[in-house]
Write a protein that binds this DNA or RNA. Sequence first.
DNA 1: ATCCAGGATGTAT
DNA 2: ATACATCATGGA
Length: 293
Amino acid sequence: MERGAIDVAELPGGFDLQSTLESGQTYRWRRDDGRTYADSGLHGGSAWYHAVDDGEVVRARQVDGRLEWTSSTDAEPRLRRWLRLDDDLDAVVAATPADPLVDAAYATYRGMRLVRDPFFPCLVSFICSAQMRVERIFAMQTALARRFGEPVDFDGHVYHAFPRPERVAAASEAELRDLGLGYRAPYVRDSARLLAEGRLTPDDLPAEYEAAREALTGFVGVGEKVADCVCLFSLGHLEAVPLDTWLRRAIAEHYPACDRGGYADTSRAIRDRFGPFAGYAQTYVFHYLRHLG
DNA sequence: ATCCAGGATGTAT
DNA sequence: ATACATCATGGA
């Protein structure tokens, strides 16, 4: 077992592990204690988190300006890429036009970073997100890993990787419904089949953001909103602004002029207003609004 | 009991 | 292109 620590106090804009992992942008990490924002509140201390990535267990916790990790190999390059530690957050904030709501969100969760998740787990989690609360999306991904994922031993415990597309493609709709996926079960299975059979893969996606979003809707259960989530949280299109219920409410209340009716036009209006890192602003605002009152 | 949750799909217009 | 009903499930 290897262990190490990354000095995140030196990163421009800082770092906050809890908000990064529990803000509903990634569903791959769990706290060792099994608790969440919902039952432990904000800024809940230096809890350990664990995840399985590319067959290897990674454990991590933040103690002040140190991001501590343990893994079977050197996890620092993996964490730097995964948690976007090389993003200049100060530059991101500076490039975003001043705005009361966005500024409040940035101030409250200073240090939260976007993630760069692998394609399939990201795709599945946001297919599952349709009409579903964040806490239950976590539960659905946990159930998928426990039922179909490869077990991985690490430091005396058994963890479960997220299943490969081939395994999900081979599952029956009934098996997936048993995991609580509801009507999303066939969506997840059919999208896994598209990937497993090579009929639609990340390599087929155009490099340009809006074209990639359009192509992603070729997966089953993926509309413009879910496609935007994959663009932002997996493909690195930082200008993508997923228009979920929270953002639509925020637009109606704070930026009514940006409501152009259709998804593409409204999304573009928000992007024009908040710039090339509009996706960062979106994720902060989503997290901020969800934890008010 | 009724409503709602990080929406998408099929169908009718 | 746009409007509408429908789709499971669990918590408030």
